[in-house]
Simulated scan of single mutants.
Amino acid sequence: MADIAYIRVSSVDQNTDRQLDGLTFEETFTEKASAATTKRPELENCLRYLRKGDTLHVHSIDRLARNLEDLLRLLNELVGRSVAVKFHKEHLTFTGEDNPFQTLQLQIIGAVAQFERSIIKERQREGIAKAQAKGKHCGRKAKLTQDQVEEIKKRITAGDEKKALAAEYGISRQTLYRIIKK
Rank of each mutant, 00 (worst) to 15 (best):
S11R: 10
L74K: 05
Q14W: 02
T28Y: 01
T55W: 10
R51H: 13
R117L: 11
T103N: 10
Y6F: 15
K134N: 03
K89H: 09
S34K: 02
H91Q: 08
K86H: 11
I120L: 02
L144Q: 05
I7S: 00
I171K: 05
K52N: 12
K89E: 12
L23S: 01
I61D: 04
S60H: 08
F101H: 09
T175R: 15
A142V: 10
E168C: 02
L23T: 02
S118H: 15
T103G: 11
L47Y: 00
A111G: 11
G96S: 09
L78G: 08
V79L: 02
N15W: 02
V85H: 06
M1D: 15
C138Q: 13
S118L: 14
Q174Y: 13
T93D: 00
V83P: 14
R66Q: 09
K39G: 05
I7Y: 02
T103H: 09
L75G: 06
K181F: 01
R48D: 14
F101A: 15
N99I: 09
F29Y: 08
S10F: 03
K52H: 13
D3V: 12
L50P: 01
G110N: 10
I152Y: 14
A2D: 11
D160I: 04
K143I: 14
S10L: 03
I7N: 03
S82I: 05
A133Y: 00
L20M: 08
Q132E: 10
N67R: 02
Q148S: 06
Q146I: 11
L165W: 03
K154S: 01
Q107C: 11
E77I: 07
N15E: 04
D98A: 06
E26L: 04
Y49L: 03
Y177W: 15
L68C: 13
T157R: 15
K141L: 14
E90A: 05
V83C: 03
V79K: 06
R51Y: 08
T103E: 10
K86S: 13
S10P: 06
E44N: 09
S172E: 12
E31T: 09
T37R: 12
H91E: 11
L23V: 06
E69G: 08
T16A: 03
I171W: 09
Y49C: 06
E126C: 06
A166M: 03
R40F: 08
